[in-house]
């Protein structure tokens, strides 16, 4: 393939960062010469650990800094504590965390209601944007949901009626 800059003159910056000698490239480079020293670097000041922080059992400690967004709590917190008894190498770590996330959603709704705030789920799902930019699609989706819902209700009603008639006979 022709690779003269003229051929690519219409592309600003073509070849500006080409460096055929840089191979293998990132991330296999910039060795610091300290790799063999292991976990011996001067650690940054430790952030005070005054909330519950999980740490992977594949490391010996809590990192020097950590996030405090949502400390574990409730049933989901109990599940997360169990998850962190297993390593990142183990499904027993990740699958309970996914379960805990789902439990946490229910806890979130309960918490909202306890705080006197009934979650406006359509608004949280951005239905206004859907209504503005995909009204036809949204209406179709609602219609399909309504038809399926009606079908299910009708089926069970008919089934119940049949059972009642059988019973009457």
């Amino acid at each position: 393939m022709e690779t003269t800059p003229n051929k690519y003159a219409h592309i600003i910056g073509w070849g500006i960062d080409a460096d055929p000698k840089n191979d293998p490239t990132y991330p296999m480079r910039n060795r610091a010469g300290e790799e063999e020293k292991g976990y011996t670097w001067t650690r940054p000041t430790q952030q005070p650990v005054n909330i519950e922080v999980h740490h992977s059992i594949e490391r010996p400690n809590v990192t020097a800094v950590f996030g405090t967004a949502v400390p574990p709590s409730g049933l989901s917190g109990m599940i997360r504590r169990l998850a962190f008894k297993k390593s990142e190498n183990d499904y027993g770590h990740w699958l309970p965390l996914i379960l805990a996330d789902r439990v946490n959603v229910v806890e979130g709704i309960i918490e909202d209601i306890k705080n006197g705030k009934f979650p406006n789920i359509p608004a949280e799902k951005g239905m206004k944007a859907e209504w503005q930019h995909n009204r036809g699609g949204l209406l179709r989706q609602l219609a399909v949901t309504a038809i399926i819902g009606y079908g299910i209700v009708a089926y069970f009603r008919a089934k119940k009626r049949r059972e009642q008639e059988d019973y009457d006979y």
């Binding site: 790799e35 976990y39 992977s56 490391r59 990192t63 020097a64």
Partner: peptide, 29 residues
Amino acid sequence: IACGQCVFCKQELYGNCHESNPQATAVGG
């Protein structure tokens, strides 16, 4: 989120910092 001091940050692997994510060793904060 990178400390700049760990062996990975020294290699400019700032996405792999070892002092910013206690919950998982595979990724930095």
